[in-house]
Simulated scan of single mutants.
Amino acid sequence: MQVSIKQLSYAYPTSPNDHFVIVVYEIENQSGATLNNVYAGIFADWDILQPSVNKAGTDLSRKLGFVYALDTDSLYAGIKLLTTDNLVAHAIDVNGSGSSMNINDGFSTLEKHTALSTNNLLAGGFNGDDVAHVISANNFSIAPGGKHVVAFALLAGDSLLHLQQNADAAQTQFNNDALTVNELNNTADFAIYPNPAKEQLTIVGLPANEKNTFFITDISGKILIERTDNFTNRIAIKSLPAGIYFLNIITEKRQQVLKFVKN
C-alpha cells in the first residue's frame, strides 16, 4: 500500500486536560488509485494492576473503549475516536477464551484486520481476564493524492465516570484546537546541526514568538539538560560526555525528539 502517514501528538499540563493525550494521523494516498475500505486504529494492552482480572467495555455514544481491573481501587484507561469517522471497537480476551482470536501466540494479519473491522464490545467475562482492545476509524476511502485525518485520545481516569468526563474534555479540546489537514500540511520537521556536535546544537524550524522547552536525555531516559526559552535556537552541550543523546523539543503546539551524537 503506497501511503504516507504523518503523526502529531498533543499533551496538556492543566486540568481538565491533563488526563489525556491527543494523537492525530494524516494518511496520504500516494498511489494512482483510490484506496477503499481503509481502517485506521490503535491497539492497547493496558495490563492494569492485576492483568488477569481486567475487563474491557465500550461507550458507543462517546466512541470510547475502556479497560479496568476488578480490584477495588482500579484505575481506568481508554481510547476515544475524536474524528467524525464511524467507530469500530473490538475488545479481546488475549487467550481467546471470550472472543474470536487468541493473540498469545502472535497477532496475525488476519486477526489485526478482524480487530480493525468488526465490533466486539466486551471482554473479560464475569471474573476478568487478560484483555486488550482496538479502537478504529471504519471503512473510509482516500482518492489518489488525497488525505484523510484520524484522531484519537489516550485517556486515564480514577473511575468510569472520571474517564468519561476526560473523554468529553478531550473531544472539546480537539474541536477547539481545530486540528486540520492544513495545519498538518504546514508543519515542518525540526532539524539540528551539527550532528555529531562538540560544544553547541543549533535547532532549525522553531516557531517565532513561542515559548520553547528543550531537554536532553541519555539512552536510559535520564534528563541531563533542561531549559525553557522564548527565542533561543542554540543549546550548549559542552558539559556532556561523548555519547548518544536525545534532544526533546516542545513548543506550544508540537513536540519532537531528535537523536544526536556528542563528540
Rank of each mutant, 00 (worst) to 15 (best):
S9V: 13
N37P: 00
S61V: 13
T114L: 15
T251C: 00
E252T: 09
D129F: 05
V88M: 04
Q2E: 15
V38T: 10
F215H: 14
G145L: 09
A56K: 06
Q50V: 09
T187R: 10
N230D: 11
L8R: 07
N248C: 05
L121M: 09
I244H: 06
N36Q: 13
P16L: 09
S9P: 04
F66L: 14
A151D: 01
K147W: 01
Y39M: 03
S108E: 00
L224F: 10
F126P: 07
I219P: 09
N54M: 08
F190K: 01
F66N: 12
V131Q: 02
V131D: 08
Y193P: 12
D130L: 06
F190N: 01
N37A: 13
L161P: 04
S99N: 14
K63Y: 04
M1I: 13
Y68M: 03
F43I: 10
I244R: 08
K222A: 12
G145Q: 06
V21F: 05
R227A: 06
Y25H: 12
Q50Y: 13
S141L: 00
L122H: 08
H162F: 12
S61P: 09
I5W: 04
Y193F: 15
T72V: 14
D229N: 11
E111G: 03
I135E: 06
S159Q: 04
Q200K: 13
V257C: 08
L49C: 03
Y76R: 14
G145W: 00
A236S: 14
V94D: 13
V261G: 01
V257E: 09
M101T: 11
I237W: 02
G96V: 03
E183M: 12
P194M: 06
H90R: 02
I219C: 09
E183R: 15
R62C: 07
V261K: 10
T251W: 08
I27H: 01
I249Q: 02
I244S: 11
S239Y: 01
E226W: 00
I79M: 07
D129Y: 05
T84N: 15
N119F: 10
K6I: 06
T213I: 08
K238H: 09
A242Y: 02
T114S: 11
N230K: 09
I103D: 07
Y193S: 15
Q256Y: 02
D45I: 11
R234L: 08
